[in-house]
Design a protein around this nucleic acid. Structure first.
Length: 457
RNA sequence: GGCCCCAUCGUCUAUCGGUUAGGACGCGACCCUUUCAAGGUCGAGAGACGGGUUCGAUUCCCGUUGGGGCUACCA
């Protein structure tokens, strides 16, 4: 989704800026929830965004043995202990605490089993989890985006590091892997801040170097709540489908929570890489604004040469069930792209300018015909009458413009009253490139046909 | 509830103690003697509140309020 994509982008920009090595690690320690389809979505999203990595994808599950060994070492060194409490006992302890309006926190003294009971369960080889013995000390770090963050060990649980089936929990797996992979910088979502002190305690307990952390704030929906499904398009594939260009998406996402430090907004990839810095990441959450994304996409669209746009547009056209040649599409794209905000809009505009397409009038087109009444078909007839004699060779934008201007002047017509009906006849709507260009792009025969058809309305 | 994070126009942001608080999206007006969702010009629009520190606070400190996150044998 969008938040994950931005986090990935920040990691990528940081790695490329510093010349570091970007590692893609799929954290799949929860075997029930992670599926191949899941990771494929992630890989597709990164690929579309144009983000690559230097190592991986590495699947965390591969290293289950090492995770376990690290946990066992903690156990052997007395920094962790076995907990024979059953899930049921734990839940009831939790419920009792909440009934008494107390804060529940796993307390190794209070929840300790009586010695004989402990001995009994040990002897019976009862299942147990392994808990990390959280030291009662301050745990602090200098976060690259938030500055110093500090926690008290006593506010933290003796959290589980090994499940009763012997598998490692996320927090341990991450620390074990970070050390094994010599990770220097961890750039991740804000929602991991509360995991960080636990992980730091683990790094220390295991004798590992603690990496530098940068916690980037979450992305919010328009209502100020964390961006989620109910906000509509949140998957990055959704934006691909909407006709957003990867470059525009990158640029937009980069600016969501990060700033180059001045007013620059259109920042192509090399610029993004050159200027990216963790220190410029905003510490407050940002609201995702789809309208601004579309604006930015429009900027990229207008700046992109038609021949580079033709590929994506043709793909979109194909999806609409419409096959066109590059040669036919390119000149249309050229004339239409400045006004569009998405590839989808460009494709639709191209389709509308192809021969034999049924023209359906949109609400604004309808409003115009209603407003003009009789004059609508009258002016169309006039246009047809004057356009019809123009030979194929003369059917070019500059000549057409000249002819139309002359016609309007000769008849004392306001330009809009002559042009706008033609535009509606040709596209069904009231928005397009200048009418003479539109006529040229649609072509003589098709244009005259559409005008004639609209005259009857 | 506890712990942690956060707070400049509606939104994204600039400002690293001294500015008429700047830009962008969106919005409004006007211009481009042809529409426009293109382009141009202009306009409305912000430092949550209360205390300090300081010659001077949007900026530093504390509190209040308001948001958000975490509080699992999830990641």
């Amino acid at each position: 989704h969008v938040g994950g994509a931005r986090t990935a982008l920040f990691n990528w920009l940081f790695a490329r800026h510093t010349g570091g090595t970007l590692v893609l690690r799929i954290e799949d320690t929860d075997r029930e929830r992670s599926t191949e389809a899941h990771t494929q979505v992630i890989l597709d999203g990164l690929g579309w965004l144009g983000l690559d990595w230097d190592e991986g994808p590495i699947f965390q599950g591969t290293f289950a043995e090492r995770h376990r060994a690290d946990a066992l070492r903690l156990l052997a060194e007395g920094k962790a202990y076995r907990d024979y409490l059953t899930p049921e006992e734990l839940t009831s302890a939790r419920e009792a605490a909440s009934a008494a309006k107390e804060n529940f926190r796993f307390d190794r003294e209070r929840l300790a089993l009586p010695v004989d009971e402990l001995a009994r369960r040990e002897a019976a080889r009862a299942p147990y989890t392994v808990r990390f013995a959280m030291p009662d000390a301050e745990i602090a770090w200098d976060d690259a985006v938030h500055g110093r963050i500090s926690w008290q060990g006593r506010d933290l649980d003796d959290f589980i590091i090994l499940r009763s089936d012997g598998s490692a929990i996320y927090n341990l797996a991450v620390v074990s892997d970070d050390a094994a992979m010599a990770i220097t910088h961890v750039i991740r979502g804000d929602d991991h801040i509360s995991n960080t002190p636990k992980q730091i305690a683990l790094y220390r307990g295991l004798g590992f170097d603690v990496p530098i952390f940068a916690h980037v704030p979450v992305i919010l929906g328009q209502d100020g709540k964390k961006l989620s499904k109910r906000h509509g398009a949140t998957a990055i594939g959704d934006y691909q489908d909407m006709g957003i260009l990867p470059a525009a998406m990158r640029n937009f996402l980069a600016l969501l929570g990060w700033s180059p430090g001045n007013d620059d907004e259109i920042l192509p990839e090399p610029e993004l890489i050159a200027r990216f810095a963790l220190e410029q990441i905003q510490s407050k959450p940002a609201v995702f604004d789809p309208t601004k994304l579309e604006w930015m996409n429009g900027q990229y669209l207008s700046a992109l040469p038609a021949d580079e746009l033709v590929g994506p547009v043709l793909r979109e056209l194909k999806r609409l069930g419409c096959t066109v040649s590059r040669e036919a599409a390119e000149p249309i794209i050229e004339v239409v792209k400045a006004r569009a905000r998405t590839v989808t809009m460009v494709a639709e505009a191209v389709r509308l300018r192809l021969p034999g397409v049924e023209i359906v009038r949109d609400p604004k087109g309808d409003a115009l015909t209603a407003k003009m009444g009789e004059r609508f078909s009258k002016n169309l007839a006039l246009a047809h009458e004057n356009l019809d004699p123009i030979p194929e060779e003369g059917w070019r934008a500059t000549e057409l413009e000249h002819d139309l201007l002359a016609l309007a002047e000769a008849r004392g017509l306001k330009l809009g009253d002559l042009m706008q009906p033609i535009r509606v006849a040709l596209t069904g709507g009231t928005v397009s490139e200048p009418v003479h260009e539109l006529l040229a792009v649609v072509g003589r025969e098709e244009s005259l046909k559409r005008i004639a058809a609209a005259m009857k309305d």
